[in-house]
Structure formats: C-alpha cells, structure tokens
Amino acid sequence: MKYLEYTPLDRINDFLSHVNLGERTIKGCLEAYSCKHTGTDKKLSLSLEHEILDYLGKSSDTDSSSPAEYLSSRSSRKTLIYLILTLYHIYPDYDFSAVNAHQFFTEESWDCFKQIFDTYMFEASKEWVEANEGGPLLEILYKALDEVVKLAECEIYSYNPESDADPFLERGAIWSFNFFFYNRKQKRVVSFRFCCISNLVADGFLTDGLCNEEDGEIFDDMDM
C-alpha cells in the first residue's frame, strides 16, 4: 500500500486536525492509499490469506450470513485484505486478525454515511462555513473523495470494533467513526476517521476531580 498525497484532502485534514468546541474537540483525518503492494505488504497479504483459508478449512458453518460464507468468495477476501492492509498502515503496531476484523466491517451506502456525518459533524460543519469559502463541509468532502476514488464506483465500509479492540479510540472519546471508500477498479482506498473528544477528560480535569473526591472521603474518616 502506498500513501497518496492529494491537496483537496490536505485542506480538509488541516481543518479537522483540531476543531475546538469548548468542552469538546472534533478531530478527523483522511488518508488515501494505492492497493499496490509495497514493502512487507505482499508477505502480510499472504499471511492474512492463509489465516482466512485456515479458518474456512476448519469451519462447518453454512449460514449465508456467517464469516465463512462471505470469506469463501475470493473477491470478498481480496477486499477484506486490502482494508486490513490499510488499517496496518494507519496503525503499524496493532495486530489485526483477518477473521476477527471481518465481523467489524459493514458495507454502507453514501446516504448512510451522509446521515451520520450530518448528525455528528453538525457543529464542525458550522465552524467550517465560518472559516472557509467554497461551500458546506460535506459538499467539499464529497468533491475531494470523488476526485480521489470516484464515489459512484466505490464500495463504502464502516469499521466498528469493540471498544477494547479499537486502535482508533482516544482517551476521552465521546464517539468515533471509521469509514473506508474502496474503488475496486482503481485499486485505491480512502480512510476517513472522525471523532469527538471530551476536553475535560483529555486535560485530566475529571480524573483530578475524582482523585480529590477520593482524598476527601479518606480525610473524612480521619480524626483531626
């Protein structure tokens, strides 16, 4: 996977690097990758393929909604491996299991993504309009994504792991979303991560307050 630089994505990334809303901060990051193997990608890709095939060899599940049914398709395995390789490039120190990661990916529509974006990025979008010219944030995002991966040809996936297995989750996170826009023809993926962080937790205010309360309870039991 090769990281691809695109100016339209850089403009949005600069804005979403830190949108301070008082007690909360919105953060977001767009990254584009070519699916062409580089470096250790080929070895990792083969390892993931073997993991999947080993799982299929041991599985007797014939449920059409099961991982085994989905992963029996070579095209589906290839897509999953590209998505996981993208995850590895974003978080190289995290160990992603192909079979486990599969259950956290869900194919989405643009309308579903738009609904989530409009709901959770409403305040950030207002800040964008006040600070930038050229149209609403979602409109600019659509144009940027379309330039990089041609949205009409894209498959869109959300990635929603369990909290204890989420490498994206930051301290103080209130909510977070991870989307992948995959163009099979172009062999290109764009990842889009955006989240909301509590400034109180991030700055340690709530932790400090909790410690102070505990100290107070300790001293309450002491004879002065």
Rank of each mutant, 00 (worst) to 15 (best):
L56S: 08
K27T: 13
L87G: 05
L80F: 02
D14Y: 00
V148L: 00
D14N: 04
G204I: 03
S72Q: 05
I26H: 02
F122R: 12
L87Y: 01
M121H: 01
Y33C: 07
F117N: 06
F181Q: 05
D166R: 00
F194M: 03
L83H: 02
Y91L: 06
P67V: 04
T106R: 12
D221H: 13
A173L: 04
Q115L: 15
R171D: 14
K150Y: 10
S59H: 00
F105H: 01
S72M: 08
F194A: 12
L83R: 00
I197P: 08
D14P: 00
F180I: 09
E139C: 11
I156V: 13
D221K: 12
N160W: 10
D164Q: 11
D203E: 12
L200C: 11
L4I: 01
L210Q: 11
F168C: 06
E162Y: 11
T25I: 04
S163I: 15
N212I: 15
F96E: 03
I52L: 02
K126P: 13
T86W: 00
G28E: 01
A131E: 11
F117D: 08
A202Y: 08
I156L: 07
A101T: 04
T119N: 10
S60M: 14
W110C: 11
A202T: 10
E214A: 14
L85V: 06
I174E: 13
T25A: 04
S198C: 02
L48W: 01
L46H: 09
S72D: 07
C195D: 15
K150A: 15
L9M: 00
T7S: 05
D146H: 04
L200T: 11
K58P: 11
E49N: 07
E217D: 14
K150F: 13
L21E: 09
L83C: 06
A173I: 10
I140E: 10
F168M: 07
Y157R: 05
L56Y: 03
S65I: 14
M222G: 14
N20M: 04
L151V: 09
P167W: 02
S76Q: 14
A101F: 02
N160V: 14
S59K: 00
L71G: 05
H37V: 14
K187R: 09
L151Y: 00
L46D: 15
K143T: 08
N178D: 07
A101C: 10
F96V: 06
V201Q: 13
N160Y: 09
T7A: 03
E139W: 07
C196F: 03
L138H: 08
W128M: 01
R74V: 14
Y3G: 09
P92F: 01
F181T: 06
Y55I: 10
Q103I: 15
E217Q: 11
R188F: 05
E155C: 13
R77K: 03
E31L: 06
T38R: 10
C196Y: 03
C35D: 04
G204R: 01
S198T: 02
Y55C: 08
S72N: 09
E49W: 07
M222S: 13
W175L: 07
N160Q: 12
V190M: 06
Y88C: 15
V99N: 02
K2E: 13
F15W: 01
L71C: 05
F192H: 03
Q115K: 14
L21T: 02
E123R: 07
F168K: 03
T38W: 04
Y88D: 15
S66C: 05
S163Y: 11
E214T: 14
K114A: 12
L145E: 01
P67A: 08
S75E: 15
E107N: 09
L46K: 12
F181K: 05
